[in-house]
């Protein structure tokens, strides 16, 4: 059924384009790559220490998250491409790109995507592809997926001791959708977009995380998880 809609969309674009003077190909290649940045530097998981917005040091060990429901739109004409079955597990030591393949040509000026997994897909875990529970992103005892995972170590400024930080954010209320504007996408031309994931934004705006003052440095559910989600709803993933 979905396919049908795409075919229809596709067909109408072909008709459109044949009226133009310059022949615009009906489809264009589109891919998105992701860069991970913390404190202005490229993220590394090999023991390198970074400085958090709170001024505390942090040595990241694991960074993974879901980007889902990717859509492109021309805000003037309303032409829209919605990626079907759109679930992408991005990780620092794994996949850092999203290949949309050949999509209908348009002068897209908006990119919409979600951080996490939507309520329907989050309601079960017997799924395949990037949602396969073999990637350690499915929760075992509370059905659903971790949306954003960041793990590492920091020095507790009160005790002076090294301490682990575990951030596993999931659950439907923490699902966030982001829309960003695009410039320079030209109908018919192959396009590579770059997104930057700014890890600093997990720790600030609006909620500054002072790790040494946290009641628990395992942030999974409840109020603290909600605060991190509030932080990542804006400025975390941006178009470069």
């Amino acid at each position: 059924m979905k396919n049908l809609i795409y075919t229809a969309l596709f067909g109408s674009i072909m008709m459109f384009s044949s009226c133009d003077d310059v022949e615009v190909p009906a489809t264009m290649a589109m891919d998105i790559s992701l860069e991970h940045v913390l404190d202005g530097q490229t993220l590394e998981l090999n023991g390198k220490s970074f400085t958090l917005p709170s001024g505390e040091d942090f040595t990241p060990k694991k960074f993974k998250y879901y980007i889902s429901n990717v859509a492109l739109r021309n805000s003037v004409s309303g032409e829209t491409y919605v990626e079907p079955n759109s679930y992408h597990l991005i990780s620092e030591d794994g996949k850092k790109s999203i290949d949309l393949g050949m999509i209908p040509s348009a002068n897209y000026d908006q990119l919409t995507f979600s951080i996490g997994v939507d309520e329907v897909a989050n309601g079960k875990t017997d799924q395949t592809g990037d949602l396969d529970p073999n990637s350690d992103m499915a929760w075992n005892w509370n059905t659903g997926y971790k949306f954003v995972v960041l793990e590492g170590e920091f020095t507790n400024s009160n005790s002076g001791e090294r301490q682990g930080l575990i951030i596993h954010i999931g659950t439907n209320p923490n699902f966030r959708t982001v829309t960003q504007s695009l410039t320079g996408v030209i109908a018919g031309s192959p396009t590579s977009l770059t997104l930057t994931s700014n890890l600093d934004e997990l720790f600030k705006d609006p909620n500054i995380l002072q790790l040494s003052e946290l009641e628990s440095t395992t942030i999974m559910f409840g109020e603290m998880a909600g605060k991190v989600a509030e932080n990542y709803s804006e400025g975390f993933i941006t178009v470069k």
Partner: peptide, 29 residues
């Protein structure tokens, strides 16, 4: 399912006993 109802259905639940180190400790791959 589960004593606290945390698992939505059997299809989702099974990964818990299969992979938990204190239960079957399997690596799915």
């Amino acid at each position: 399912l589960f004593w606290d109802g945390g698992a939505h259905d059997l299809e989702s639940l099974n990964f818990a006993p299969l992979t938990h180190p204190d239960e079957m400790g399997a690596d799915l791959n």
